[in-house]
Design a protein around this nucleic acid. Structure first.
Length: 271
DNA sequence: GGTTCTCTGCCGC
DNA sequence: GCGGCAGAGAACC
């Protein structure tokens, strides 16, 4: 069972002060760096490098949340130098570090409400990419939820040109097989990102069970955790958590309503 | 700007 | 299933 070996590598990455190199990890596992790389990627959905950087970014967020100074947090999270960190801060936090510290105060988030066949839909995007897609019966609760999630951000609701993006998202909802070719601003723990990555690899028109999904990310026993990660998905349809069902074929839960899960799956099954 | 590391497609056993 | 090469690209110094 190679899932164990990959899990070993993950733990090694997590416990190391500075991220081990590919060769180092492969040696530790007892495989060639070539094969190890492919194995790791096939199981986690992330390359070892991507896994390490996701983990570092997560540590950084924790350190920043613990009220450390930005410079201290950067070193505590395992970045070698602050200058190099700042080069890519945007990419890693989805915003400038100082903005993150201040609760996203300066962050601008564009959003729009619209109507689709499943009901009211909210699409929101940060500078980095689409950060929320939510569906409900009425628009008001959607907007409230967005405000709750980004309490200090500047929410901009009437940006000209944003309709284009909304149109693409709605097109995806109406015919999921199109796929969404837009940058996503996915914020979550390493574990959540692994689950969401795996969700993205479920082909349109098919479903998997929660336990199958857990196996795919190399953690067959973490079924409940996987289910929670699916439920934590904030990008409806774009990250297809609706394609996960229970072992007995029942639809199980869906953040945006069981009827919508059913409708989406029916739509996908049509073609 | 050069070097080293990562990543992927392809092939061989 | 596993190892390896080549070549492009990213990261690093």
């Amino acid at each position: 069972m190679h899932a164990n070996k990959v899990a070993m590598a993950c733990r090694l990455i997590e416990s190391a002060e500075t991220s081990p190199g590919l060769q180092q990890l492969a040696d530790h596992i007892g495989l060639s760096r070539f094969h190890f790389h492919r194995l790791f990627q096939s199981i986690t959905g992330l390359t070892p490098k991507a896994y390490a950087s996701a983990h570092k970014a997560q540590r950084l967020r924790q350190e920043l949340d613990a009220n450390m100074s930005i410079t201290d947090a950067i070193y505590a999270a395992g970045y070698g130098s602050s200058s190099r960190f700042y080069d890519t801060a945007n990419q890693r936090l989805g915003m400038q570090a100082s903005q993150y510290v201040h609760g996203g105060k300066q962050t601008q988030i564009y959003f729009a409400l619209a109507q689709c066949s499943l009901g009211a839909i909210l699409v929101a995007s940060s500078a980095k990419g689409v950060c929320a897609i939510a569906i409900a019966d009425a628009p008001e609760p959607l907007l409230l939820a967005l405000q709750d999630r980004f309490p200090a951000a500047q929410l901009i609701g009437d940006e000209p040109g944003f309709e284009l993006l909304v149109a693409r998202v709605i097109a995806l909802v109406e015919s999921p097989k199109l796929g969404l070719d837009l940058p996503l601003d996915v914020q979550g723990t390493v574990f959540q990102q692994r689950v969401w990555q795996a969700l993205g690899e479920i082909p349109c028109g098919t479903t998997v069970t929660y336990s199958e999904l857990a196996s795919r990310i190399g953690m067959p026993k973490a079924v409940r955790a996987v289910a929670s990660a699916c439920a934590a998905n904030t990008l409806a349809v774009a990250i297809p958590c609706h394609r996960v069902v229970r072992q007995d074929g029942a639809l199980s839960g869906y953040r945006w309503g069981l009827a919508r899960k059913q409708a989406l799956l029916a739509k996908e099954a049509e073609d």
